[in-house]
Write a protein that binds this DNA or RNA. Structure first.
Lengths: 251, 251
DNA sequence: ATGAGTAATAGTCACTCCGACCATAACTCA
DNA sequence: TGAGTTATGGTCGGAGTGACTATTACTCAT
């Protein structure tokens, strides 16, 4: 790479470099409390700049793949998992993000299940960290993670996104634990239950979770995005959540 | 530009081109009905591809400017206006967006006031169009405009964004007309009034709009984003709207 | 000048949603 | 067999909102 030795005037002439990075969130159960916590995988940089520091998984955009595909490749390369939820987060393009070159990063964020696959996949250069209390990362990746966290919490408060952390069947208590772990607050089980029962995108099954210590809870399943009509049909158009309208209207 | 003559194998070797485009919304009052309507400015392409078609204002990213600055430059170049509201919309990077090269566009969207400056600024290659009922545009710009429209309506239903279409002082009826024009529905004046009176980010003044045909309405002013604490402090971090949390909680 | 017309403003009423809280059911384990 | 704990069902009051009615305050045509 000639970039790393470019001086300032050479840098002016180079077109901006474009990279795709991905913030991957998963829940891990704390062995002590049993409560789920937010974790994410990082990769150790093996070249300058920021060599040795931890960074978001990412890389350049291959000419044959879409932005979304590149982010999905980040995900499977570092975790071995297929994306359950993958969405564009933001394009970061500050002038001084990288010292040696002008770098624009299009960042995606993903949700995956807390499988045991993680542990097997961990290596010298890939490690999982708690999403809060991160050490200083390479580039501006701390800010990016913070923004992804904000977006995750925001989306959690609105939309039906929590299910992407969970498996095929789940109890209402598991959904509640996801909310509590991500938002960092305690929720009333009865009220939360009423809330979810009214949600159109999950449905009760006739199965019950056995083997627990107490009354067996009913299992539910996620029906997928319900009735968004057609949010984005074209291939390159992002999908979105339909907007509520709540202002006084006449018939 | 050697790009335009690149064949497929050469294209594989070229890094993706990066461009910044901006969707600029403004309200114009219909001369007949007097009601405001959504308009946006487009520029005519003067080179291939899509020569002669209308397209979003945009261009390459200069090495010394941030993404936001580039979008602001799009805005002032085409309208002569300073950005009142400017936010990143999405990064579009489909493989086949442009025929001759791999093109990634980071798109911003902006709100400006419907000043008379528009008319003066219009020229052979810059023209304003109604946001609905657009003719086929260059590239995938129709989809981009549609997504920007969706985002505008979405944000309008939640946040306090309507004020950026208006001037320093405004009546509640003007705010209501903005909502009605953008969302395309009729709102009850009394209920809408109650809604706005409860909003923390606008305040009544002691001034009244004179010269109208009826009872002079009180003028209000926008106080700016109220109590978002600190959404994004770092320079490259996007600003966002704080998230409501509405699920049953214990003390 | 005077009343018609219209928008601005104020207020009522019923309905829904939600947080706080209480009660019962159903299971495991000591 | 009963203590402990979670799952589940229900109640109550307050906040917010859509539908609607009434009053105020201005302009304009007669």
């Amino acid at each position: 790479m000639a970039f790393s030795s470019a001086n300032v005037s050479e840098r002016e002439l180079q077109p901006p470099s474009l990279a795709i990075s991905t913030v991957i969130f998963a829940l891990r159960h704390d062995p002590d409390s049993g409560r789920p916590e937010l974790w994410l995988p990082l990769v150790r940089r093996i070249r300058q700049p920021h060599r040795g520091k931890w960074a978001l998984p990412g890389g350049p955009l291959a000419s044959h793949e879409s932005l979304q595909d590149a982010a999905g490749r980040n995900l499977s390369d570092t975790t071995g998992l297929a994306p359950r939820y993958l969405e564009q987060l933001y394009a970061f393009g500050g002038v001084d993000r990288a010292a040696t070159q002008r770098l624009v990063s299009i960042v995606y964020w993903a949700l995956v299940q807390p499988d045991e696959a993680h542990h097997a996949r961990e290596s010298e250069n890939v490690r999982w960290f708690r999403a809060d209390s991160l050490e200083p990362l390479a580039f501006d990746h701390n800010e990016i993670v913070d923004y992804a966290l904000w977006r995750l919490r925001n989306k959690m408060a609105y939309g039906s996104i929590a299910y992407h952390f969970l498996g095929d069947r789940f109890t209402l208590a598991q959904v509640r634990e996801v909310y509590e772990a991500v938002l960092g607050l305690e929720l009333d089980p009865a009220n939360f239950r009423r809330h979810l029962r009214a949600a159109p995108d999950i449905a009760p099954t006739e199965e019950f979770q056995q083997g627990g210590r107490h009354r067996p809870p009913r299992l539910y399943r996620y029906l997928g995005p319900q009735s968004p009509a057609t949010a984005g049909t074209a291939a390159n158009t992002p999908v979105g959540t339909p907007a509520p309208v709540n202002t006084g209207r006449n018939p």
